[in-house]
Nucleic acid binder design. Sequence first.
RNA 1: GGUCCCGUAGCUCAAUUGGAUAGAGCAUCUGCCUUCUAAGCAGAGGGUUGCAGGUUCAAGUCCUGCCGGGAUCGCCA
Length: 587
Amino acid sequence: MTSLILNISKIVAQAFADEGLEAGFGQVKTSDRPDLAQFQCNGAMAAAKVAKLSPRAVAEKIVARLNTHDIFSKIEIAGPGFINLNLTDDALGEYVNNLACDPRLGVRDIGAGATVVLDYGGPNVAKAMHVGHLRASIIGDTLRRVLKFAGYDTIGDVHMGDWGTMMGMVISELELRHPEWIYFQEDFSGPYPDESPVTIEDLAEIYPTASGNSKSDPARMALSHRATVELQNKRPGYYALWQKMVEVSIASMKSNFAALNVYFDLWLGEASVHDVIAPMVEDLKAKHYAVMDDGALVVPLKRNEDTKEYPPLFLYKRDGAVMYSTTDLATIVDRVEKFHPAKILYIVDQRQNLHFEQVFRAAYLTGIVSPDVELTHVGHGTMNGPDGKPFKTRAGGVLRLEDLIALGLEKARQRLHEAGIDQHFSGDELDDIARKVSVAAIKFADLQNNRMTDYIFDLDRLTSFEGKTGPYLLYQVVRIKSLHEKADYQFDPSHRIIVDRSNRDLVLMMVEWPQVLEAATRDYAPHFLCDYVYKLAQMFSSYYAATHVLSQEDVATKISALALSHLVLKHIEMILDLLGIYAPQRM
RNA sequence: GGUCCCGUAGCUCAAUUGGAUAGAGCAUCUGCCUUCUAAGCAGAGGGUUGCAGGUUCAAGUCCUGCCGGGAUCGCCA
């Protein structure tokens, strides 16, 4: 079904067209002034310039034509030339009753099956995941769900950092500490043991040490670089050790992502494209895109019209190693060949913007992607501490993602205990509720921010359960479920929602949904969904407080209220699903 | 220094991309649990949108200049 906004827009657009004006002026939206009208069209003011008439004169002509339609209960001109519109309750009722049978709730198919690859999460094998990974993971996963809902064929790839200097740092550190390990014996020919010599806890300690030592000591850094090159050349001992580190690391990542309901279709990393690199580089050399520059092999990207510096893209560093610019470009080669995507989206920290601009420019310049493929860096801001710098714990370290999740879980349990409702639940159900509440709190608190801006990390806010929070939404869901249980209600398509003064605002809110979803899809902006679902839940809560459902004596009125609450329930749950948030049966 | 981003209520954030009276949550204050879950509802106070100009019917949003903060600028990711 098409959205109501679209249907009204068509009618108004036709009126403009009949006046010899561009139909595009007929775009209708929900009113910014609900006290004045339900819908508005601002096109008369824009059209006035073209028509060389006053805005009000244009509006009057349009209004005269709209008056022939009986779906409008009010048509007015206000201010400089706003056309304000109200619909009859019958027209609203017809739409909302159809909505109840549409799983997409009025959203058209935007994607038409085109493929979108989403690159998000980006955890590193060398180090444990911390709160800094939260944003990229959940924004990326949400966009994957949103684009899929919008009709795209989506592929989410975790794209682990597993082939760069960080790995060389860790391997060389291990070699310094344990030179006797068989992984470091040049004459050992295998097989290597099944069990990993390092745990994720080891890695959490080793990487910061190795990184710190390498940065402060050039000789130590040289060891890291050498180990990186040898790993990339697949020296057997290094490669076997690397495989073990990847294994333990993935196990840890999976538990973190699972805890947050973050899903990936592909578990690939930088190393996955190792075999793509050499042929790609040969091709770029043959076509003279790749040239030597101070001992390194690079692709120059400068253009004369540039207003800012464009450093060249590095393919091979002077020491012979490849770096993330190399693997990112090779990954595009790989994705284009395998998936023929219409878009590739990178949900990565905004600070890497220049890097992605370089990679994209190189990809277009060399013909690795055709100009009609969209490459977008969907950047996000950083999570800062109270000092405005990237967040660190009081001890100066990073807060592990699993620790954040544990903190939320503990607080949710405490909350259930304080409310004295934990005695009504079994241990398993209690765990499940606490988990759902804490995940809802953490994810919603993050996703409701505009992804581009930095924001201040606040543990209390991230694990807050009142006000504009995830748990508030779960609470509304649970209340509706409980209401239906008490009423022993099952929805049936024959149940009619009767629109009247008591529920009109709630119905009008649901009319907005399709344009919210489209905006979120267009701008890759999850916070539009958060804003909307919160307003919807809030409006339902208000309705719920004002209208006692179970005591309604008139059968049709009662059925209408139950059917409406069912529709709202489906609506909220659907959006929560897009955010990767799930509600318990009760809480 | 070059380039880019940001500055909105005491705090944390929105504002459908140029629309009407700039909105939420937290915090503060006032009401509401003997009918559906009070993790709730109803209401109040709180603003020269950093400053100064400009563009037009209309500017938090666009252009210019200041002030303040941040990011980034060749072999880390």
